[in-house]
């Protein structure tokens, strides 16, 4: 008998994906329904839960805006300019992708924390970074740094410089060229980068936990809320928040797919 290889491959791929992705999400949905949708919504409406969600939303927004702008500028510099150490810098910006966020949190703790390098100057001006909002911002910015940069840099390499040169010979200033030619050329890459930044910011846990401390109602984000709720065996709250994050992530994923879909104008 012939072995149906194609069918076997298909089933194994689908089975693997289901086991890793679909089953866990399904499990969360079932637990939420088990616990009672009303109860879960009640848990999510409590002030500490609302605070955690709001904090995550704010952090994600800050990451998108700052690393979005930085990503565009850095991509332009890395792709279009030639300078000593460019290759090294080009490698370094990917570090947040490979380094464990927990290690990142620890490293920042050494700089900003108790007995850290910047403890004295920060104390003098009365700034608290660790276990406070600025710490969360730094942690989120670090882990989301490369996404916009990488997406935009890829598109910049692909589109080349002739469109910009054409604009310049037609009398456009640097700003006019950027606004009218470069930005429309990179807009899809930018959108993808922003979406990935958003997704990463929503899901960050380790760095945010170490640098922020997950203080309920203060530095607790959606992810650290889930962690705390599990520890305290508040399953309704944990699964509810997990479902919220899963839904938002899926929405972001849908957005990304839509943005990546080939457009007619290309």
């Amino acid at each position: 008998m012939r072995i149906p290889w194609r069918l076997l491959l298909f089933v194994s791929v689908i089975g693997y994906l289901a086991a890793l992705v679909l089953v866990p999400i399904g499990a969360i949905v079932i637990r939420v329904v088990d616990a009672g949708v009303g109860t879960v919504l009640g848990e999510l409406a409590r002030p500490d839960a609302v605070h955690a969600m709001a904090l995550t939303a704010i952090l994600a927004t800050i990451a998108v805006v700052i690393n979005g702008l930085f990503g565009i500028v850095a991509a332009l510099v890395l792709v279009r300019q030639r300078f000593w150490g460019r290759r090294l810098l080009d490698t370094l910006v990917d570090l947040p992708l490979t380094v464990s966020p927990v290690m990142t949190g620890l490293a920042f703790l050494l700089i900003f924390g108790r007995a850290g390098w910047l403890e004295w100057p920060l104390e003098t001006v009365g700034w608290k970074v660790t276990f406070a909002f600025p710490g969360l911002v730094i942690a989120t910015l670090f882990v989301t740094l490369p996404f916009t940069l990488r997406e935009v840099a890829g598109v910049l390499v692909e589109v080349g410089t002739t469109d910009e040169e054409a604009a310049v010979t037609l009398g456009a200033s640097a700003w006019q060229t950027f606004w009218n030619v470069t930005l429309p050329n990179i807009k899809h890459g930018l959108a993808c980068g922003v979406t990935l930044t958003l997704a990463r910011a929503l899901g960050e846990f380790g760095a945010v936990l170490i640098l922020g401390g997950a203080i309920s109602g203060k530095t607790q984000t959606a992810t650290t809320f889930i962690y705390a709720a599990t520890e305290e065996r508040k399953e309704g709250a944990a699964f509810g928040m997990a479902l919220v994050l899963a839904l938002v992530s899926m929405a972001v994923l849908g957005l990304l797919e839509w943005l990546k879909a080939p457009r007619k104008e290309e």
Binding site: D163, V168, T169, G171, P184
Partner: peptide, 16 residues
């Protein structure tokens, strides 16, 4: 280049 008032046509058009 922007001030030279030169019309330039590229091999691959470079249309926006």
């Amino acid at each position: 280049a922007r001030a030279r008032q030169v019309g330039f046509v590229f091999q691959h058009y470079a249309l926006f």
